[in-house]
Design a protein around this nucleic acid. Sequence first.
DNA 1: AATATATTCAACCGCTGGCAC
DNA 2: CGTGCCAGCGGTTGAATATAT
Length: 261
Amino acid sequence: MVRGPCCEKMGLKKGPWTPEEDQILINYINLYGHGNWRALPKQAGLLRCGKSCRLRWTNYLRPDIKRGNFTQQEEETIIKLHQMLGNRWSAIAARLPGRTDNEIKNVWHTHLKKRITQNSATPQLRNYSAMNRQSYGGDIPAVAGEESAAQSYKFTTFHSMQSCGSASSPPHCSSESSSVVTADNGELSTNNLPEADDSFWMEVLANDQIAMVGSQQGFVGEIYQGQFGNLTMEQPINETMDFWYNIFARGGELSELKEIL
DNA sequence: AATATATTCAACCGCTGGCAC
DNA sequence: CGTGCCAGCGGTTGAATATAT
């Protein structure tokens, strides 16, 4: 299926948006919504392709976008989420209300990646580097002779859940069914798990956030009322924490976890 | 002050998956 | 089931800006 560039039609404008164009787009979406991006520019009277309009709206004009610098906490969250999700910027953005995937991607490439790379000289973050590298082909240089402790991670069965992030998250929830991520011999290594199922990471993340948010902000349960295998939200956070504590501990990530928590 | 270099970030490009027909 | 369309995603680019020389 070969398709030409979406903006190849003559007369369609490219490049930076003018305030006038922004206003037209905002006004139109406020009035009619954005049900059909392809038809939108024509109907709104914009000389742009639908893709460009969508991008402008989602990355810049959306009213719920938070402008300004990232806070220390946001940066730490990104690092942590990136460690778990890899370059899945939209998934990361879904957990940072008000931030866009594009923005997060930029921040990662301009600030955070460098920070990680620099810090990878330290033992704590070397583990992150190794794990990162193996789990999704991260670009952090290999440290000679260092096999990821993550290879020894062992997971049990996780049951289904629905996770849509927070209410303010973009509407791409995952309601996929669960996955069992144990290998034949019961051992999970990132070598035999080239691509973890989405739902698995959603579960990991949901649980992780609960621990984090719960300890910091105290609204455990509001964001997650699902079930997590043998771990449910009815159980004390400590048990959940213990579960992940053990997993990280087995993988030699204990020191990192302590730091995060 | 002028120039070179580095950094930032908005926007584009191309690919992919979901859906309708 | 195959095909085409569309929205969304991640990688990349390049102009604008900041900083160094």
